[in-house]
Amino acid sequence: MDRETIAKVAKVARLALTDEEMERYAQDLDAILNSFAVLDEAPASDTYALNPVPVVDVLREDEPAQEIDPQLLRGQMGTYEDYVRGPRLS
């Protein structure tokens, strides 16, 4: 894995890396991904599932409910006039 790739991945992941980190992670990931090359030898297959056991048709009925008082949650988020403040948009 080259530095250009690691820089792009870090940007997508919203991580700022120092030069030293960039170097080190590139080296680590290179070794790791090389060892993962064995995956290419596994037979290809289109059958896959998201879970190791079947989880099928688990649904919730459309009944409104709130178990936790939203006021408690607002309190944890430091709201201003009930809004949650965040950083600059532009």
Binding site: R60, E63, P64, A65, R74, V84
Partner: peptide, 24 residues
């Protein structure tokens, strides 16, 4: 009547009143 992935109501409300740990 309730949200897609949690039971919070969908009816109009004051800001941050129809909230729960899932939709937060």
């Amino acid at each position: 009547r309730s949200k897609l992935f949690c039971p919070c109501p969908t009816a109009p409300a004051e800001p941050n009143h129809n909230i729960c740990p899932v939709c937060l």
